[in-house]
Design a protein around this nucleic acid. Structure first.
Lengths: 143, 143
DNA sequence: ATAAAATTGAAAATCATTTTCATATTTGAG
DNA sequence: CTCAAATATGAAAATGATTTTCAATTTTAT
């Protein structure tokens, strides 16, 4: 039994709403829940299931990336556009307070090269979450 | 009301069973579920909740690392047996097959400095798991 | 216009993990 | 040893994100 070639699928306003929203906020990431609530607030008819389903399709099509920010419940989604898979920024999370720094960082870009060349792995800067302690949380603890 | 200083905790046979199992299979990774089922099969009284709770402690103690493999439901745990938390040694995990490379890597040491100096975070190289794809998993997929 | 193909969404189901809470165990003090 | 406080356990229930179900609706090609 052979798979039929993938098609773009039918065009629906839900799909268009979702893609428009993601494009409009191309630099930001959202959970499926956040996106669902966004449309609910606006009164736009985009159901929760539909958000999940279409996000999955967009991820498969390479228009959106999906990743987890640990300690933070659900997966996050971010629009990246077809030809720009490497446009990724990195996430530096404070292990104490959860603050997230979004890094566009040449040093980490070089790290990716280093890992490829010296350790033989294709580094995944999207899935990798860098942990540390933010400056506030580095202050001495009170007991 | 002040927090009492953390202690190692009481010694229980469940903890010992768990640690013994993990040490015995130091090179392999398991889900909490797999470990629970293992003990259930043997008739050893180690409850599911206890598995989760003690794994978490071992992770905090630095004896075990926790990470996610894609498409694979739950988190994976692997014994690494490092007593010295400050002994620079990083983990590079293949997001596909789970292979772990243990890196002693000057480049990542420098990354820690860079993150401190340029981003104001005290980098936690122990909690951070670097993800990528190992050379085997980089080969083209079959459909 | 119409029928097949695909999509939607509310509700139910799943699945890993966490919480609850009553009971049991460990440990240190006396 | 004895006892009580601190801690751990585990069954069951709760949680929370995501997926499935399935009947109704929408899209598209004919």
């Amino acid at each position: 039994m052979k798979q039929r070639r993938l098609k773009t699928g039918y065009n629906t306003k839900q799909k268009e709403s979702l893609l428009a929203f993601l494009k409009q906020h191309g630099g930001a990431h959202f959970t499926a829940e956040e996106i669902f609530i966004h449309f609910a607030r606006l009164g736009e008819p985009v159901g929760q299931t539909t958000v999940y389903r279409n996000l999955e399709k967009l991820v498969n099509d390479g228009l959106v990336i999906k990743y987890d920010l640990q300690g933070n419940g659900g997966a996050c989604f971010q629009y990246i556009g077809i030809d720009d898979k490497r446009n990724g920024h990195y996430h530096l999370v404070c292990a104490s307070c959860g603050e997230i720094a979004h890094l566009e960082c040449g040093f980490i870009d070089k790290l990716a090269e280093h890992i490829r060349d010296d350790h033989g792995f294709d580094f995944d800067g999207q899935k990798t979450v860098f942990y540390g302690r933010c400056s506030d949380c580095q202050k001495p603890e009170e007991l």
